[in-house]
């Protein structure tokens, strides 16, 4: 554990609390892509199989993994059951097969060993890299977002961005790096660059998040 990873993980935790706070206080999941949230459940469910089939790492590791699994399922429940009328599927139109197909193929080619757990682990890494796309696509379509939604996205993007200095640090202290996680993590962070730019130049200056026409 190093400071970059710890802050990254805390940022990930914060993003989920911000999202829950947004849904509970506004009693609405307007502006949130159900498809992206469903992809995160898929990501956690396929990656954290190591809780059952892998070796024990640490109490921190187990608690965090259980939290991400539980909270992501709870968000789906809020969107599909409790606040269903506020969820508008007609603007959440990204085609999931464009993400699931390529990630499946990549996972079958690039993995640490050709076993179900490792293939699913690779799949989860590739899928996480692109899971935000339905959300960003929705943002693009509506052209604007509530401030709280942008705080959620910023915290979520910061999480993987902070994993990059963590990997650099680990490379120098441990002498190894994980090409699958690192390359996917770079792509994942890259997808946020446009968003980060508008977030910093507009939302943090107190302006509304609006995409240029």
């Amino acid at each position: 554990m190093n400071i970059f990873r710890l802050i990254g993980d805390l940022s990930h935790l914060a993003s989920i609390f911000i999202l829950l706070h947004k849904i509970q206080t506004t009693r609405s999941c307007r502006g949130i892509s159900f498809k992206t949230q469903a992809l995160y459940v898929t990501v956690f469910a396929t990656r954290y199989l190591d809780l059952i089939f892998g070796e024990f790492v640490s109490v921190y590791n187990v608690i965090m993994k259980l939290f991400f699994l539980g909270s992501s399922c709870y968000i789906l429940y809020l969107m599909k059951m409790k606040y269903k009328p506020t969820n508008d599927p007609s603007i959440d139109t990204f085609r999931l097969e464009y993400l699931l197909g390529p990630c499946t193929v990549l996972a079958l080619i690039f993995n640490f060993s050709f076993t179900p757990v490792e293939i699913l682990w690779s799949f989860s890494i590739f899928l996480e890299a692109v899971a935000i796309l339905p959300q960003l696509f929705m943002l693009q379509r509506t052209g604007e977002a509530e401030a709280i939604t942008t705080h959620y996205l910023a915290a979520l993007g910061a999480y993987r961005a902070l994993y990059i200095p963590n990997w650099i640090y680990r490379y120098y202290t441990e002498g190894s790096w994980d090409p699958i996680a690192v390359l996917a993590g770079l792509v994942q962070t890259g997808l946020y660059l446009d968003f980060f730019y508008i977030y910093v130049t507009k939302v943090l200056q107190g302006q509304k998040f609006e995409l240029p026409a």
Binding site: R5, D9, H12, D50, G54, E55, V57, S58, N61, M64, K65, F68, F112, S113, T115, E118, W121, Y163, S176, W177, D178, I180, A181
Partner: peptide, 10 residues
Amino acid sequence: QTPAEHHDEL
């Protein structure tokens, strides 16, 4: 890196 090692990250 062995297959098990990358499971320590989230």
